[in-house]
């Protein structure tokens, strides 16, 4: 698997650190327990396109939002996390 970092170009998977589902929204500090439970523990875990966080940890160290199909591993979109 190769990920095309917007800054460094196409790089091998081994240069990246996986950060999981990028669509989770952190609840407000005073949100109820259920909102926090859902945020910390529950996942959509889709079979198909998945928006996920990757850090180019052995490169520019930027966090990226990658859209990748979990069934085929094909990557359709990569963009920096800043501005999303």
């Amino acid at each position: 698997m190769l990920i095309r970092c917007p800054w460094c170009g196409e790089r091998d998977l081994s240069e990246f650190y996986y950060g999981g589902d990028a669509t989770l929204k952190r609840p407000a500090e005073d949100a109820d327990l259920k909102a926090w439970h859902d945020y910390v523990y529950l996942r959509d875990n889709p079979k198909g396109p998945h928006k996920e966080l990757w850090q180019h940890s052995a490169g520019c160290r930027e966090f990226l939002v990658v859209t990748r199909d979990t069934l085929t591993h094909a990557i359709s979109d990569v963009r920096p996390v800043k501005g999303i």
């Binding site: 999981g20 589902d21 523990y41 529950l42 996942r43 959509d44 875990n45 079979k47 979990t70």
Partner: peptide
């Protein structure tokens, strides 16, 4: 490994990643 996918058919979200 298909737990999340099948549970979603019943409207459930699980504390599981595949």
């Amino acid at each position: 490994g298909n737990s999340g996918h099948v549970a979603a058919m019943a409207g459930l979200r699980l504390p599981i990643e595949s």
